[in-house]
Every structure is written in structure tokens, then in C-alpha cells.
Design a protein around this nucleic acid. Structure first.
Lengths: 159, 159
DNA sequence: CCGTATCCGACGCGATACTG
DNA sequence: CAGTATCGCGTCGGATACGG
């Protein structure tokens, strides 16, 4: 969970670009729930981060958007994710109302996911992200791989 | 080779959405390095996810963009992040060539960060993200908080 | 003012096995 | 085909303390 935070007032990311931001920090609410580290939901970037957080979520959204709706299809598309995690993240997406799940009462079981309208609104945003990545892919790949070579040993790992 | 990445990172962002995607997947290369779970750098979303990954990076980028350049300023802006993590993430941003660091040889020490041109290109994208979050903030807050109430106890945590 | 080191808790997620 | 349970590893990041 990314959202462990307890920061508050000054640190809304969106400061300039988003006058909409409000000040009655959710910190307050969250501490009431005794979460050790409260969420910060003060600005748009925090919020979207909350919803997209998860290793496979964006992938899932995109594939569903592309028409791969059944769990087995998704699994085939994302073979590196375990069934367990896929289910967990799909459920989260569902709870965030970005997708809906339809269970057909047939044998063998059949399940289909699809984007909600709300989910659809996210697609252009994801596109924008991906576009930036695509535009700079050469450079990014180079930089990322270079970094990995430099730091082959994790600093936190005791040898 | 130490086994970092044995269990991939939790990317906030990552997906194969793009037709540009190439198939000589980096997965391949990565497995050659004996990483158990390869990085996926196949598409723009994967790449951008790699670069933005980190709890405070987006915030850092934004604040630097806004003109808060010195470590102490940034720290004040993000009081919940420890100095350690801030430095780590700043260094990563630097290695990814999104920001530059200038050290002035004076006493007391003075350091300044600023966005590179490359880093600047990321700003509109972040704006887009934040904008979506802002537009739907009511709903998002509601949904996120609702979910948290439902699952107050993490399933994986042993009590 | 600036940076880094060590310790450690939280939790995401992979592996595997089992049910309907 | 779809879903869940249990287990344990690994990584991020917080707390604190020290050195320049």
C-alpha cells in the first residue's frame, strides 16, 4: 500500500494546477480509523495513485479495454502474475468501480469483466502516460538498464 | 548475481497497451541476467512506471518544478518522508536524468535540484494524471475510503 | 546545511495446493 | 474454468543516530 502516509497540509502535489484541492485533510478521518499511517487523499495525484496502485492494474485495465474480458484470457496475457494476485487486483478495480464483473450461471463457469463508464474515462489518461513512455522508450530503456547494472547489490541486503 | 527483483517490483504503472510494443522482450535479456522475475520494459507504460516508481517521486518532481529546489525546502514540503528516502529517490531521479543536482562548494553546504529538459516533458503528463484525479475526487475519495472500511484487516497479516 | 548507516516493521506478491 | 488458503520471501520506506 502506497498510501501510507500521514502528511498533510502543505504537501499537496497539485498546488498550482489544481485550485480544486481542498484543505480538510483526510488525514483526520484516517487517523480516526486508527490506521497507523493515514492516507493522503488531498489531491488528484494522490487519488489516482490510490486507484492505480498494484502491480498489474494498469495492464488489467488496458487489456479489458482491448476486449480481453475473461479471467483465463487475462491470465494468458499476463502470465507472470499469479491467479491469486490477478483476482485480488481485479476485485479492487471492481470495488473502485472501474470495472464490473459478470458471472454467468453456466457450466463450466464463465466470468467476464468490462470497464464501467468511469473506467473508460481513465483510458485517455493511461494513453497519455504510455505515449510519453513510448516517445522516450530508447532513452528510458537505456537509463533504466544502466542504473540496474550500477547497483547490482541492494543496499539493504545484508550479505 | 544477487537476487534483486526476484519478486518484481510493485509497479504502479505498467501495461502492454501499445502496438509499438516490441517483442524482443527485455524479459529475455533480463532472464539472461538471471533475474527470476524479469523487468518488463516492453511498452511505454512499463517504462514510465519504472521511472516514476517510488513513494515520493511524483511529489518531488512537482515541487522541483514549482521551484522548490533545495533539499531542506523539499523536506519541509514533504515532512513525512525521511531524509534518507528523499535522498534515495532524488538520486534515482537524477540517474534517470529527470533532474540534475548542483552542489555549491560553499560553507554551509548548498545543493540545488532542477528539472532537466527531459524531466520537463514529464510535467504535462503528471498534470493530466492529477487532473483526472481532481475531476473525480469526490467519487474517488468515497470509493477509496469505503473500501478501507470493508477490509480493515489485511488478509495477509497474521494477528 | 547536507548526507549516509543500521535496524526493523509493513505488506505486496509469488508458489503451491485444494474446492466447486 | 474460476476462486481461495496458507506460507514465506523480498523490498520499500520509517526511525534514529552519526559524520562532514
Amino acid at each position: 500500500m502506497p498510501n501510507l502516509y500521514k502528511y498533510g497540509k502543505t504537501n499537496r502535489i497539485g498546488i498550482n494546477y489544481s485550485p480544486i484541492v481542498q484543505f480538510w485533510t483526510y488525514e483526520y478521518i484516517c487517523t480516526m480509523y486508527e490506521r497507523k499511517i493515514p492516507l493522503s487523499l488531498n489531491c488528484g495525484l494522490d487519488l489516482i495513485g490510490e486507484v492505480l496502485y498494484g502491480k498489474w492494474k494498469i495492464r488489467l485495465l488496458w487489456f479489458i479495454h482491448e476486449g480481453y474480458k475473461r479471467p483465463s484470457e487475462l491470465q494468458r496475457k499476463i502470465p507472470d502474475a499469479s491467479r491469486r494476485v490477478l483476482n485480488i487486483q481485479l476485485k479492487e478495480l471492481e470495488e473502485h468501480e472501474l470495472i464490473t464483473k459478470t458471472i454467468y450461471p453456466v457450466v463450466p463457469p464463465k466470468v467476464e469483466y468490462s470497464l464501467t463508464e468511469f473506467g473508460e474515462t481513465l483510458i485517455p489518461v493511461l494513453s497519455a502516460l504510455g505515449q510519453w513512455g513510448d516517445e522516450h522508450q530508447e532513452r528510458l530503456r537505456y537509463l533504466i538498464l544502466k542504473r540496474l547494472e550500477q547497483v547490482p547489490i541492494d543496499k539493504d541486503v545484508i550479505l
